[in-house]
């Protein structure tokens, strides 16, 4: 257990260094003058000229040798200082927390809603495997999964905002603004996770140990709670871990459609204006989220599966 935590901590440190270094190198390799890009981000898209670019270069010391800039960044990172945004001049940590908060809120809400859909739908489909409900849920899943996510978002906007006038189209100003983006994401997530639930539950229902537990006289409910639940939840938990990581990375579309100030969107904009510390900060935050999620998945599996405890 302690070993697992230490291993993950070491991984986190390695992720910070490697992601930061990689983004640093990649950004240097991109075409286009950095100081011009930053000047466009700072002074507005039609106010960028040589004078603005030179002011940026002088202020940020961009004419220093590359290795020196890299060393400065590495030293700062060791002191847990991510630096200031080149565009806004505000500390990266401050901006990151604002974005991270919104991304986690959206991803968290979407996961809860997706589980509320996926678990009942998946279990019922497994119970009536190959029945009409199972086939229908397969069709709906395939249909939703095949849509680009902004299509789902737009369809929801058209229905709930324009026709019914119940919810706002975009923005972030309280819980009402969370509903549509979270449901759009949740539908796309549940499309796949409901099938994973269905598959792993139907395996359990068809297994010898489950049949045996019924034969020895347990009701279906007792058999499921005592023998089925843990067995079928393992693959689901592992899948959710992977899915959540990809959701956090992939919400850029939803964030930009709903004007949601999240990490994915912040990262995209930082790349446009070559805001290196922001890009490094966002990439490191995403990497750490990945490590954290893996840790949570490991711990959950550890708690669910007695075999892994014995092995440890």
């Amino acid at each position: 257990m302690i070993g697992l935590l230490l291993r993950r901590l070491l991984q986190a440190a390695f992720v910070c260094w490697s992601i930061g270094t990689l983004t640093f190198i990649l950004l240097r390799l991109l075409p286009g003058d950095m100081e011009f890009r930053i000047a466009a981000g700072r002074y507005g898209h039609d106010n960028v000229d040589l004078a603005a670019a030179e002011a940026v270069r002088a202020e940020l010391g961009l004419d220093q040798p590359v290795w020196q800039l890299y060393l400065n960044w590495l030293l700062d990172l060791m002191r847990f200082n991510l630096g200031d945004s080149l565009v806004s001049g505000l500390p990266v940590v401050h901006e990151m927390l604002h974005l991270l908060e919104h991304t986690l809120m959206l991803a968290g809400a979407a996961t809860v809603v997706s589980l509320l859909i996926a678990i009942p739908v998946g279990l019922y489909a497994a119970l009536k495997a190959n029945g009409w409900f199972d086939r229908l849920s397969l069709m709906v899943s395939a249909f939703l999964r095949a849509q680009p996510i902004f299509m789902i978002g737009l369809a929801l906007i058209l229905l709930f905002s324009l026709e019914l006038r119940m919810l706002p189209v975009a923005g972030f100003d309280g819980p009402r603004y969370l509903v549509l983006p979270a449901i759009s994401l949740a539908l796309a997530m549940a499309a796949v996770s409901s099938r994973v639930v269905r598959h792993s539950a139907s395996e359990v229902f068809r297994s010898a140990f489950f049949t045996f537990s019924r034969i020895k006289g347990l009701t279906f409910r007792q058999a499921f709670l005592r023998h089925g639940l843990r067995n079928c939840s393992l693959p689901v938990v592992v899948f959710l871990g992977i899915q959540l990581a990809s959701v956090i990375e992939g919400v850029v579309m939803i964030e930009s459609l709903f004007s949601w100030p999240g990490l994915g969107h912040g990262l995209a904009h930082a790349i446009f204006s070559r805001d290196v510390p922001m890009i490094q900060g966002a990439a490191i935050a995403l990497g750490l989220i990945f490590v954290g999620l893996n840790l949570i998945v490991d711990l959950t599996c550890y708690a669910i599966d007695p075999r892994s405890r014995e092995a440890a």
Binding site: I157, S161, L162, V169, A170, G171, S256, F258, H265
Partner: peptide, 20 residues
């Protein structure tokens, strides 16, 4: 309240929905 809307389509829908 001023709110940046990134996509032109979203902005048009915002005013149609009475939100903005």
């Amino acid at each position: 309240v001023y709110l940046t809307g990134h996509r032109a389509e979203s902005r048009a829908l915002q005013v149609m929905a009475g939100q903005t």
